[in-house]
């Protein structure tokens, strides 16, 4: 049985605008900083720029699309785990899209 009750309508812009504004300026400053330092050829910066382009789309699935743009698109298990952590962006898929 579904107990879902739709939340009361609130002004989500009031709740979230200042936080989003601040995060966007941080992102802009990050891109400026790595460019000034000559580090903007890093594949992770390229992945960020590729994801930023998705924000101007008009479908309400931007978060999902940004996450997918950072994701490994392959489907087979890798032969061996050579590290334990994750980087946050997938280098090979960026190269493929750049071709």
């Amino acid at each position: 049985m579904n107990h879902w009750t739709k939340p009361a309508s609130v002004n989500l812009v009031d709740l979230g605008f200042m936080d989003s504004r601040s995060k966007l300026i941080d992102l802009a400053a990050f891109l400026d900083r790595v460019q000034r330092a000559g580090q903007d050829d890093d594949f992770r910066v390229a992945a960020l720029k590729q994801a930023i382009a998705l924000l101007s789309q008009n479908e309400p699935e931007r978060a999902k699309k940004v996450l997918l743009s950072f994701s490994d698109p392959s489907t087979e298990p890798i032969p061996k785990a050579t590290m334990q952590g994750a980087i946050g962006a997938h280098k090979e898929s960026l190269k493929v899209e750049a071709v």
Binding site: D72, A86, A89
Partner: peptide, 13 residues
């Protein structure tokens, strides 16, 4: 499920 870039693929597996 795996982290970051590995999550989508790992979740499917």
């Amino acid at each position: 499920t795996p982290h970051l870039e590995d999550k989508r693929k790992g979740t499917q597996l």
